[in-house]
Simulated assay, not measured.
Amino acid sequence: MIVGQVIELKANNKFFTYCRKAFGVRRFSYNWAVAKFKKDYVAHCAAMDRYTRELAEYKKSPLQSTVVPVKPKLPSWQDYKKEFNAIRLEKYPFTYEVIKYASQQAFVNFGRAVSDYFENVKKRKKSKVKTNSKKRKAFFPKFKKKSYQHGSFYIGGDQVKIVTGKACSKKLENHSTKQYMNIPNFG
């Protein structure tokens, strides 16, 4: 069973520049979500403190207070993605220069990082691991830094097409039976 494929692409200067832009958009989207999450998480912790105090007061005398306190919710990665897409055209028009998946997949990865963080916190509380132990450390989502050695972005399966007979260079035009992968904006 083939699970995935790694394909090495030989990049010309135009393709290399496009990839660097896509890496930057992905990093920018992820960092935007992390910055927004940090602010929301601080506000959420304060709201949870208020909620626990109000709930304790309500449990002491439910007849005096008729309003049950509502538990605050932390926004999900889908909420951040919707908010980013709403302001994207006005504030960040450079994100439209690359494929749409470059910014969208960053939010999926951000959601995975946040869920891993909270899952690790729960495991840590259950197992009562020492704080200096290297096992099960819970890391808050961190900002991605610019790196020239590594970079990646996601291309959706609906964007990639396998074309038979279409050559990517004049040297290979006579080989009409060969298959080529056609990725938009890559050639």
Score class of each variant (00 low, 15 high):
residue 1 M to A: 09
residue 7 I to T: 05
residue 10 K to N: 06
residue 16 F to K: 09
residue 28 F to N: 03
residue 30 Y to M: 05
residue 35 A to V: 14
residue 38 K to S: 12
residue 38 K to E: 13
residue 40 D to V: 02
residue 43 A to N: 13
residue 47 A to P: 01
residue 48 M to P: 02
residue 51 Y to F: 13
residue 51 Y to C: 01
residue 53 R to N: 12
residue 58 Y to L: 06
residue 61 S to Y: 10
residue 65 S to V: 11
residue 67 V to D: 07
residue 67 V to C: 09
residue 67 V to E: 12
residue 67 V to F: 08
residue 71 K to A: 14
residue 71 K to F: 11
residue 74 L to S: 07
residue 76 S to N: 10
residue 82 K to T: 08
residue 85 N to F: 04
residue 88 R to Q: 13
residue 95 T to E: 10
residue 96 Y to R: 11
residue 98 V to P: 00
residue 100 K to M: 06
residue 103 S to G: 07
residue 104 Q to F: 07
residue 106 A to T: 03
residue 106 A to Y: 00
residue 108 V to C: 05
residue 113 A to C: 05
residue 115 S to G: 03
residue 118 F to R: 09
residue 125 K to C: 06
residue 130 K to Q: 08
residue 132 N to Q: 06
residue 139 F to H: 11
residue 139 F to S: 13
residue 140 F to T: 07
residue 143 F to K: 13
residue 144 K to W: 08
residue 146 K to N: 09
residue 149 Q to M: 07
residue 152 S to M: 06
residue 152 S to A: 12
residue 157 G to Q: 03
residue 157 G to A: 08
residue 160 V to Y: 03
residue 162 I to N: 02
residue 163 V to K: 07
residue 166 K to G: 04
residue 167 A to L: 01
residue 167 A to E: 00
residue 169 S to H: 03
residue 170 K to I: 05
residue 170 K to H: 06
residue 175 H to Q: 14
residue 178 K to F: 13
residue 180 Y to I: 01
residue 182 N to V: 07
residue 183 I to R: 01
residue 184 P to M: 05
residue 186 F to P: 01
